[in-house]
Simulated assay, not measured.
Amino acid sequence: MSNTSEAIDNDTVIKEFIDLFAQQDATTLAPYLDQDIVFENYGSPVVKGRENVVSLWAEVFSTMERVEFTTLNQAVNGDIVIAEQIHGLALPGRPFAPIKNMAVYRMRDGRIVEWRDYTNSEYARTLM
């Protein structure tokens, strides 16, 4: 069944993508993002386009001393990937903050075309 192989591919793509965050090099994210990606981190402005999303993460990486994303659970249904994650972030000189996150990705041709992060921003601020 074609959906099974598609689901496996999308599962792998997102796992590889998440592992890249520890490198803190935004350019490594670009090949995983569709040119027309829409990134929405609730509570923040929507970011459209690969270059803009890469620029956003370059800024985050330059601000943070440490960035590590871990996937706890991940479910795939065709072109949709839902991932329960811990976004570990540390500002310089501050403790590592494990922030709970739920991410929803819509894939197209092996790339992320929509990415929505659901995080409790208020709680995240108390950790950082």
Rank of each mutant, 00 (worst) to 15 (best):
S5Q: 15
S5F: 06
D9C: 12
N10Q: 08
N10T: 11
N10K: 02
T12C: 09
T12N: 15
V13A: 08
I14K: 00
I18E: 04
A26I: 00
T28C: 02
L33P: 03
D36S: 08
N41Y: 03
N41I: 00
Y42W: 09
S44C: 07
P45T: 06
V47W: 03
G49E: 07
R50F: 02
L56N: 10
W57P: 03
A58P: 06
A58H: 13
S62V: 03
T63Q: 15
M64H: 03
R66H: 15
F69S: 07
N73I: 04
Q74H: 12
Q74V: 02
Q74R: 14
Q74S: 08
N77L: 11
N77S: 15
D79Y: 04
D79Q: 10
I80H: 05
V81F: 00
I82A: 13
A83W: 00
Q85D: 14
Q85I: 00
H87Y: 10
H87N: 15
G88F: 03
L89V: 12
A90T: 06
P95M: 04
P95A: 08
I99Q: 06
N101Y: 04
V104W: 11
R106W: 05
M107K: 02
R111N: 03
R111E: 05
S121G: 12
Y123C: 12
A124M: 12
